[in-house]
């Protein structure tokens, strides 16, 4: 039987915690951002579009370093967070969640935006003529219709967060019990002599988690598609 060692449990738990929070906290912004890019036309839109997609093409280490500069204890924003709210992000699991969220954000926005662009605007018009204001129309018509796209975005972002390494290790380092997620634990094990077997076990766990996420998304999206059709 495959039983997890306390170290593996800790890494798995941290990975799920960090990825879960990364996705949950960035989802509202992701939807807003996707909506803005899909529906609005304004000067500088390409610039915003480029900024949103930047983490996709930048080396994650660059993103991590940038986060450290901005959100670190002495950073422009980080120092204020510490001073006003007593919040520290650098070298905590919350920081790891932010690093993951930033890296995964473009994937999430892309999926939701594509889905929003394919929504029949006529249905939104119909809702308006039936007495729904723009906001209510969004929540009662648009959002349910883009639910499959939102789900895809969430799964993609979750999977990307699980595999996040570069930005995380640069921003929050490798702290056991705080920021040592699966990929970081795996990397640490490959650096010590005789860590091969333990590293392999972490590989298996990573594969299992990723696969479970994909499977879950497949089942959910099939159910959603069935709901919209039948």
């Amino acid at each position: 039987m495959f039983t997890l060692t306390p170290l593996e449990m800790e890494a798995l738990y941290l990975s799920l915690l960090v990825s879960g929070w990364a996705v949950a906290a960035s989802l509202p912004f992701g939807i807003l951002c996707a909506w803005i890019l899909a529906r609005l036309n304004f000067p500088g839109k390409s610039l915003v579009d480029g900024l949103v997609h930047l983490p996709l093409v930048l080396p994650p280490v660059v993103v991590g370093y940038f986060l450290l500069v901005v959100l670190g204890r002495r950073g422009i924003v980080g120092s204020k967070l510490l001073e006003w709210f007593d919040i520290t992000l650098a070298f905590t699991w919350k920081g790891a969640a932010i690093a993951s969220a930033v890296i995964a954000f473009p994937l999430m926005v892309r999926a939701i935006r594509l889905s929003l662009e394919s929504v029949d605007r006529g249905l939104e018009q119909a809702a308006r003529t039936l007495g729904c204001g723009p906001l209510r129309t969004f929540f009662t018509v648009t959002l349910p219709l883009v639910a499959p796209g939102v789900l895809t975005g969430v799964i993609l972002a979750f999977a990307r967060s699980l595999s996040e390494f570069g930005a995380t290790i640069t921003f929050v380092s490798n702290i056991p019990g705080e920021t040592r997620t699966l990929p970081i634990a795996l990397y640490a094990l490959t650096q010590v002599p005789g860590g091969d077997e333990a590293a392999l076990r972490l590989c298996v766990i990573s594969v299992a988690v990723a696969f479970a996420a994909l499977l879950a998304s497949e089942i959910l999206s099939r159910r959603m598609a069935a709901r919209l059709k039948a």
Partner: peptide, 20 residues
Amino acid sequence: LPPEARRLGYVFQEGRLFPH
């Protein structure tokens, strides 16, 4: 007035029922 404040019924050519 926005459409939602006009209290008019609109039957569209393609029906436009909400699929969800």
